[in-house]
């Protein structure tokens, strides 16, 4: 385990997420427990973001269901390395279905942020982009600085997927910015915004 290097990674998670969501148009977004959900809230609460406060490991699988149900819409996952590792099996199920509209971004700070910044496997030997490639993702990448992020951002938002990008972000404690906490409310407002008021 290398528990020092992530403290110096140049990319900052809040800036990355703000850039991902800046021109979101009709994009559907699922964010993972927990800092990724706080990052998305800091970028601006939105009815077409479903932020998970729990159900760790479920973000990618939930987004797969959404992507299959809404094949004409871009579906973006923003999650962390801890959630992605816990739900790693689900990556294999994504590529078997091969949804072109699904893009997965893992904010990889090599930490379990909610529990005291303990190192994850990506602080050791695990390479998330290589894992994704091994289960069949045709498009993967590891992004390490602003230049690489700027270069790949249009593809993350618009190129045919499924794809997974691991974005190495600085390990840092940030102020909590919380989205609404009522899961039924989050579900109802998402469905109303996507499917019309009677669906809420």
């Amino acid at each position: 385990m290398n528990t020092e290097r992530a403290k110096d990674y140049p990319l900052r998670r809040r800036e990355v997420v703000a850039a991902l969501l800046r021109d979101r148009d009709e994009m559907l977004v699922v964010t993972g427990l927990g800092a990724s959900s706080w990052d998305a809230a800091a970028a601006g609460d939105h009815p077409l973001t479903f932020p998970l406060w729990g159900a760790m490991g479920g973000t990618v699988s939930m987004a797969l269901g959404l992507a299959l149900a809404q094949p004409e819409r871009r579906v973006l996952v923003i999650t962390g390395d801890g959630d992605a590792l816990m739900g790693a099996n689900g990556l294999a199920s994504v590529t078997v279905q091969n949804p072109a509209n699904l893009s997965i971004v893992v904010l990889d700070n090599e930490r379990y942020g909610e529990t005291g910044m303990q190192p994850t496997h990506t602080a050791g030997t695990t390479d998330l982009a290589a894992m994704a490639a091994a289960v069949g993702f045709q498009t993967t990448g590891t992004v390490r600085d602003q230049g690489e992020f700027d270069a790949v951002l249009p593809a993350i938002l618009r190129a045919p997927g499924p794809m997974l990008h691991a974005i190495k972000v600085r390990a840092e404690d940030l102020p909590l910015t919380l989205p609404p906490r009522d899961g039924a409310h989050l579900k109802d407002r998402f469905r109303a915004a996507l499917l019309g008021p009677e669906a809420g």
């Binding site: 559907l28 479920g58 973000t59 699988s61 269901g65 149900a69 809404q70 199920s93 996507l194």
Partner: peptide
Amino acid sequence: SIALTTEEEGVALSAGAHLGGR
């Protein structure tokens, strides 16, 4: 028809499909 590797994937997938109206 969606093959899963482990059952909890399907619980989350079901919720995502409902968000999308299926």
